[in-house]
Amino acid sequence: MKVAWVLIFLFGGLLANAQYMEVSVDGMVTFDGVDFIINEAGEDYSPSVESESSVYVSIDFQSFWDALFNPNRKWKIEVAKEDLTWNNHVKLEIKRTEDGYGDWSNNKRKTRIKGGDNYQVVDRVSRDFFSGKGSAYFVPLQLKLSGISVTQGAQDFETNVILTIYDD
């Protein structure tokens, strides 16, 4: 009987702690000739270029039971980048432009997220981006490039922006 109680205690705790959120991203960002504009011959590019909000991040419970037993689970997202080929003169920044939706089905419930609404540098070191509670869907992200100059020449480079979710 003692053993049974211990097992109930352990698995009860496991169930309560098994909140495992998952993060997913839709879309990608490409900065190209449309973004790099020279207004007049003799000039350099604009000091910075912003992407359209064509990347959306969603945070969801991994299982129905997680959502049912702890809908207010706290989490935080960290951001970093892993360069494939990158120009080290160029700075990449990220922010979220809106809050997204708290409800997948009817998009009526507000999300409970905070932070991340100002540009912050994305580099190889993972840094806090934003945090929240429960699920959040279609949170739009925007990227900004600065430090690009005509003098660097024609070139292509790319990086992977990595978003990692942790229990907060």
Binding site: L10, F11, G13, L14, N17, A18, Q19, Y20, M21, E22, V23, S24, V25, G27, M28, V29, T30, F31, D32, G33, F36, I38, E40, A41, G42, S51, V55, V57, E78, K81, E82, N87, V90, L92, L143, L145, I148, V150, Q152, G153, A154, Q155, D156, F157, E158, T159, N160, V161, I162, L163, T164, I165, Y166, D167
Partner: peptide, 27 residues
């Protein structure tokens, strides 16, 4: 039980690509 709890502390990640294409210009 311990292993399961330990694994909860590891973050799960996703990624998206950011590409930059700087074209030829002659003005």
């Amino acid at each position: 039980f311990s292993l399961t709890r330990f694994s909860l502390g590891i973050g799960e990640n996703t990624e998206h690509k950011a590409s930059v294409v700087i074209p030829d210009v002659a003005l």
